[in-house]
Nucleic acid binder design. Structure first.
Length: 955
RNA sequence: GCCUUGGUGGCGGAAUUGGUAGACGCGCUGGAUUCAAAAUCCAGUUCUUUCGGGAGUGUGGGUUCGAUUCCCACCCAAGGUACCA
């Protein structure tokens, strides 16, 4: 009895310890951040998760652990730390589940969040849960709706290069029309004078303003899936059919809200230079924005009152343009096609319309096109230029039309060859009989009138000047980036704070927000094809009383379009927007809301943002490169323009954690019989590999045969051919996924080894940014390290540390501090192991060594550190204990074991005093018997001596 | 095709400014302890070797007294992107 008790005290009982400290942290609010502090601030943020029904697997917490370590470290370093967590809780899976089961998404979301919270708590994170946000919480999405309204009330002034209040634009219009305004606006914005503006009806004014607002309503082509009754995002479509169910998808024009992110294209590009983000991520944003410099050129169409505008990056080759190509969807096609060509053109347009965008992209080798019969006029030579249509020109890029220069562009070249169109050569000394010449650097222009003899750069400059002179072009920068469609025909998303009067959108005032999601019977689209919110019976806006009312109250004028029938009693009730916002709406400002999450008066107070400013360290997956991270930067810049945010980039440093891949296990089934061969016996047999659940396999790749039979009853009676009495499985690295049965659940690992072991092991696997395979077997290494460390604190003494003890401690402090600052968490774990191994060998019991060691370990393995800290006699949490200070003096050595190399190869080592000079070292080495043995009588050509480092003898 | 990142033992990986390649851990081998197992501890573990040594960081070159590290060319893998005019 007594013996058991003693043993229990000595053993590392991680289950008890971890539960104890998790409770302590929660009860004492150890990690609650204050918005008032004299300390410097540190804001460490991990991307908040979508709470899925499957829960976390070991790959998910990797970034959280890293950020938790860094944040805890900063706390030890005297920073006031903000380390929050929340949930991106609007989203598709909950809605799909609701459609299938009828359960309200809010209910399933709540259940999933609870499960997530349990799993997160179990890992011992230092999150300030008092600041939790949920995007689906009306108190939170009130502010998502608020940002939307701010965007609606703003336009982008290109002269001041920032977003400004829409009222300023209206006064411009009133004073001088829109001629002198440089603004981000729709391409089809008409020119008008102040008088014309004044004469516009209220509705026309609103329509014009929509062309300038930073969020606007417009007809947009979307991917509509009739079978699913919804629009799909591009990534939800695979090979032209829906990812879910494989239903056909068509392009459909729908009135949708869009975000004028293109207004910020250049600033989004420039801002990348100011942040410490991974290069691949910056590159993919740069590519996505797709800036290209060139010129826009206007070609007049002969015999028509029409112009074709093209964008080209090679205006210098304009004299080589021998035809033009329009996208088949180009608006001028039907207008300019001659009667003789009409039949061919119609047939071609019909054929292209049938092909999906994806088919067209996939099939790049087939050259196809049709001549319209029309000609454009070359701006300089005035020669006729035949106008073709061809599906190699995309309607969605540039102007949907190109001036084709076959000698300088391979696609134009191929097209010209295929249809026997002339290929004039405008390059000096270049052979174009085989292929086009696209080398800008070595370009010398010829046969080009006033451009002859010029280089690419000079010719571009000169031709743009000439185009401007004749009013047929100008220098232009084109972006690939499109405005972002912001409407979704979904239920489980933020409602737009919008109602419609005479078809024009009106914003609901801030004091009446949030506009809460209505209850619906069904989560599917209505029979008339309206979004799920069309099923709501209580979804109309009473603009007089500012509240949501029953649809029955809708004004007659809205109902059937006859204003004279407007019902008196129901006046001022209007329909509400039926679309909801996309998934990225709620995540585009959450990082700022954490600064002041319970503020009901503002998205956050100015005091809060003045103190916290921006995120110091943001960790999350690289899959958000062109979604969340681009949209968030856009909203941040907008709020910066409005003076709401203090920084125009929200995150100083960003790290993409690598993916943790699974190590799948395979059994080998004989093709002809129900026989399973162990891995070593499958050679020469006709077998197929079958996935086995990784939880049925031990560290030595042995399969638990009985458990396997139980798991897959079809193998209940199978014959297992063993080797040495064991069934050995094959292993392969694959993406961690349910279907591959290689998902490893953190709960089971915490149960068997503890959260501290899991945290250490995830870090120990390798560099944070790299993708790396998971193999649970290796966790025993870090687990026995913790046991060894625990043992070290068995009998703590107040004794003086030895010089050796101090050296071990201080080299550990130095290395761990450097590692954390460099986000090299894997190497710190090794350093801890070395330190504990050394102190164990030294039989160190000194409190003055073991106390700082506990602090060093605490960011990584916080539970054991707290427990040891308490055993060292402290009553307060270790969380705020100051980080140990490294002292160089303990590492100073008097001698050095010099590596002695011959021709760069190490041959032997020689211990010499460190204060020995160059010549003395050389003399000592040359006198050594092993040197003579190496040289075998040869005279060395040269002796390199780097004191304190190395000796190298050449010869 | 283009852009990016990477390539080191059986495996994960280390070597931070060019200076002892393979730290640390897994696995494996042998041993101790145990009735036995687990756990723990000790020793070994890049390859090769005639036991002196020799070779070695994707391949081939280069710079250097010295290269995993810097330069050039190429190969392979992963991720992103693609008829972008």
């Amino acid at each position: 009895m007594l013996l058991e008790k003693v043993e229990a005290k000595m053993n590392y009982n991680f289950r008890e310890i971890e539960a104890k400290w998790q409770k302590y942290w929660a009860k004492n609010q150890t990690f609650k951040a204050s918005n008032q502090s004299d300390k410097p601030k540190f804001y460490g943020l991990s991307m908040f998760p979508y709470p899925s029904g499957a829960g976390l697997h070991v790959g998910h917490p990797l970034g959280y652990i890293a950020n938790d370590i860094y944040s805890r470290y900063k706390r030890h370093k005297g920073f006031n730390v903000l380390h929050p967590m929340g949930y991106d809780s609007f989203g598709l899976p909950a809605e799909q589940y609701a459609i299938q089961t009828g359960q309200h998404p809010a209910v399933t979301t709540e259940v999933n969040i609870k499960r997530y919270r349990e799993q997160l708590d179990q890992l011992g994170f230092s999150f300030d849960w008092s600041r939790e946000v949920r995007t689906s919480d009306p108190k939170y999405y009130k502010w998502t709706q608020w940002v939307f309204i701010q965007l609606f009330d703003s336009w982008y002034n290109q002269k001041t290069d920032k977003a400004e209040d829409i009222h300023g634009l209206i006064s411009f219009f009133e004073k001088e029309g829109n001629a002198n305004i440089q603004a981000a606006c729709d391409d089809d914005t008409p020119d008008f004078s102040a008088e014309e503006w004044a004469s516009f009806s209220e509705k026309t004014k609103q329509e014009v303003l929509l062309k300038y607002r930073l969020t606007y309503l417009a007809d947009t082509e979307v991917n509509w899936c009739p079978a699913l009754g919804t629009v799909l995002a591009n990534d939800e479509i695979v090979n032209g059919v829906s990812e879910r169910g494989g239903h056909p998808v068509i392009r459909k024009k729908m009135t949708q809200w869009s975000m004028r992110i293109t207004a910020y294209a250049q600033r989004l590009l420039d801002g990348l230079d100011t942040v410490d983000w991974p290069q691949p991520l910056k590159d993919s944003q740069t590519n996505w924005i797709g800036r290209s410099e060139g010129a826009s050129v206007t070609f007049k169409v002969k015999e028509h009152d029409a112009n074709i505008e093209v964008f080209t990056t090679r205006p210098d080759t304009i004299f080589g343009a021998s035809f033009m190509t329009l996208a088949p969807e180009h608006e001028l096609v039907s207008q300019i096609t001659t009667p003789e060509q009409k039949e061919a053109i119609d047939a071609y347009m019909e054929a292209t319309a049938k092909r999906s965008e994806r088919d067209r992209m996939a099939d790049v080798k087939t050259i196809s096109g049709v001549f319209t019969g029309a000609y454009a006029e070359h701006p300089f030579t005035k020669e006729p230029v035949p106008i073709w249509i061809g599906d190699y020109v995309l309607a969605s890029y540039g102007t949907g039309a190109v001036m084709a220069v076959p000698c300088g562009d391979q696609r134009d070249y191929d097209f010209a060859k295929h249809y026997n169109i002339p290929i004039p050569n405008i390059f000096e000394g270049v052979d174009i009989s085989e292929e086009a010449f696209a080398d800008k650097e070595n370009t010398v222009i010829a046969n080009s009138d006033f451009l002859d003899g010029l280089s690419y750069k000079d010719a571009v400059k000169k031709v743009i000047e000439a185009l401007e002179q004749i009013g047929q072009g100008e220098g232009k920068i084109n972006y690939r980036l499109r405005d972002a469609v912001f409407s979704r025909q979904r239920y489980w998303g933020e409602p737009f704070p919008v109602y419609y009067v005479n078809g024009m959108p009106q914003m609901i005032a801030l004091e009446h927000l949030p506009l809460e999601l209505p209850e619906v019977e069904k989560y599917l689209p209505t029979e008339t094809g309206e979004p799920p919110l069309g099923n709501a019976t209580h979804w109309a806006w009473d603009a007089k009383n500012n509240k949501v009312v029953s649809n029955e109250m809708l004004s007659q004028v809205q109902h059937d379009g006859h204003s004279e029938l407007d019902s008196e009693s129901h006046e001022g009730v209007y329909p509400l927007e039926l679309n909801t916002m996309p998934g990225w709406a709620g995540s585009s400002q959450y990082f700022n809301r954490y600064m002041d999450p319970h503020n009901d008066e503002a998205i956050y107070s100015q005091e809060a943002i003045n103190y916290w400013q921006d995120v110091d360290l943001y960790i999350g997956g690289s899959e958000h490169a062109t979604g969340h991270l681009l949209y968030s930067r856009f909203w941040q810049k907008f709020l910066f323009d409005k003076g709401v945010a203090t920084k125009d980039e929200f995150a100083k440093k960003l790290i993409n954690q690598g993916m943790i891949t699974g190590t799948s296990a395979f059994v080998y089934k004989d093709l002809d019989s129900n026989t399973l061969f162990s891995k070593g016996l499958k050679e020469g047999k006709n077998v197929i590999p079958v996935h086995a659940d990784v939880s049925l396999v031990n560290a030595s790749d042995e399969l638990d045969v009985e458990a396997f039979k139980k798991w897959q009853p079809e193998y209940k009676d199978a014959e297992f051919v063993l080797e040495d009495g064991k069934y050995i499985v094959g292993r392969e690295i694959e993406k961690m996924s349910k279907s591959k049965y290689n998902v490893v659940n953190p709960d089971a690992i915490c149960e068997e080894y503890g959260a501290d072991s899991l945290r250490l092991y995830e870090m120990f696997l390798g560099p944070l940014e790299q993708s790396k395979p998971w193999n649970t077997a290796g966790i025993t290494g870090v687990h026995s390290f913790l046991k060894k460390m625990w043992k070290l604190y068995d009998a703590i003494e107040e004794s003086e540390p030895t010089a050796e003890n101090l050296k071990t401690l201080h080299k550990t402090i130095k290395k761990v501090e450097e590692d954390i600052e460099n986000f090299s968490f894997n190497t710190s774990v090794s350093t801890f192991m070395i330190c504990v191994n050394e102190l164990t060998a030294q039989k160190c019991k000194s409190k003055s060594i073991l106390e700082p060691l506990a602090i060093l370990v605490s960011p990584y393995a916080p539970h054991i550190a707290e427990e040891l800290w308490e055993r060292l006699g402290h009553n307060e949490s270790i969380a705020e204990a100051p980080f140990p200070i490294f002292k160089e003096k303990y590492l100073v050595e008097s001698t050095k074991e010099y590596p002695i190399s011959f021709n760069g190869k190490l041959r032997f080592k020689l211990e010499l005093p460190l204060d020995m000079g160059k010549d003395e070292i050389e003399a000592a080495v040359m006198a050594h018997e092993k040197t003579h043995a190496q040289l075998q009588g040869r005279e060395p050509k040269k002796v390199i001596v780097v004191p304190g480092k190395i000796v190298n003898i050449v010869g």
